[in-house]
Design a protein around this nucleic acid. Structure first.
Lengths: 204, 204
DNA sequence: TCTCCTTGAACGAACGATCGTTCATCGTAT
DNA sequence: ATACGATGAACGATCGTTCGTTCAAGGAGA
């Protein structure tokens, strides 16, 4: 028989809150100094807990990064949901580009994703996590593009899947450029939109 | 007054060769384990020299990475040269896309550039080096695009500089995808070309 | 109500390994 | 004898992780 009901529920909630606090601290550290330049002690200090206690909540430094990556990738869900909403494809596409670009205009998101990606090169579990979530986004966008083709709103010259990947890589490329080159993403958005419309045959 | 001529010349050559050997060893280490996971001892061991001797050739670990980045970025020079050669813009563009994509199809080049870029986020000298060399490439490509517009070979809907950046980011985005997703770059090239032609108004 | 006992979150000293860097020393050619 | 490239021991710092300990809170029995 499991232990009493009400108390554990409260406990779990407090525990989850503590985990979140640690993760937020870790994110701050990783942003400021990078994953490998951040020590476990730094995370614990920033979270205001002891070194040992951190290991009561996470199995290690790598685990912390994995959890962060999971949270980060979960933020893609709203975009996917909006992409899948019925309606005129072109309008939905425009909205997606604008909102995704806005999301990526926060340097934290870009830097964090660079940090995660570069770690994923040599850590298979991170790579799998990354690819899985990205595939969901690509699929949703590809479906939207297909709808746009069927309705005659746009003209693709290669298959939707590949086009979707290219569109995403374009937006992300601009975001990287925005961070590295210290250019505000807002200034890059108009040119990006025009380029995309041409690539997707919107002017046909 | 500088020291005697003939002997030092030979010496300098041998010295440069040794430097190169160390850099090559460092590249191998960085590729295999990443910059921060590579110790100075690993580099020295791989180069077959002693730990202390490494510091006779480089002022430190960071210096080694800077030199590697310099060498890596110098490999862009041939591309810039070919972009600047006179001739039909469209043909030159096609050739550039194919050759640059082929260059980036070597995973070493991609991984190394990720390693350098992610370090550049927090090291200003690396960032400056990176931006400077990339600007030269962007400028050359932008000029080529301008020529293409003037000759009526292609139709840009935003300014050449921005278009050039977008084109480069597209190619590089595909290359990243090729590495992370374990897809051979050759398979991505046709779709990329088609997408680019549409974006640059080649079919007009 | 008071006491005893269990529980587990929190702690931080300690571990062995490794980090980047320095430098006294040695062998070798001039 | 002199100059100098090469060496690796040594340094202090820091790494990620472990683990014995403390102690406040909650439940059971009086």
């Amino acid at each position: 028989m499991p232990p009493a009901d009400p108390a554990p529920a409260k406990r779990d909630k407090a525990l989850a809150a503590r985990r979140r606090k640690i993760l937020e601290a870790a994110v701050m550290c990783f942003l400021e100094n990078g994953y490998h330049q951040t020590g476990v002690r730094d995370i614990a200090a920033k979270a205001g807990i002891s070194l040992g206690n951190l290991y009561n909540h996470f199995s290690g430094k790598h685990d912390v990064l994995v959890e962060i990556a999971t949270l980060e990738l979960e933020e893609l869900a709203p975009f996917i949901r909006r992409l899948r909403r019925p309606g005129p494809a072109l309008k939905a596409l425009d909205r997606f580009v604008a909102s995704y670009a806005k999301y990526l205009s926060a340097p934290e998101n870009i830097i964090l994703s660079i940090e995660i990606t570069s770690e994923a090169i040599r850590k298979d579990d991170l790579a799998a996590l990354f690819m899985e979530n990205r595939k969901a986004l690509v699929d949703a966008l590809a479906d939207l593009l297909s709808r746009g083709v069927q309705s005659g709103e746009l003209v693709l010259r290669s298959d939707p899947q590949e086009s979707a990947e290219l569109v995403l890589e374009l937006i992300e490329g601009r975001a990287y450029h925005s961070v590295l080159g210290q250019v505000p993403m807002l200034r890059l958005l108009p040119g990006l939109k025009v380029f995309l419309r041409a690539a997707l045959g919107v002017f046909r």
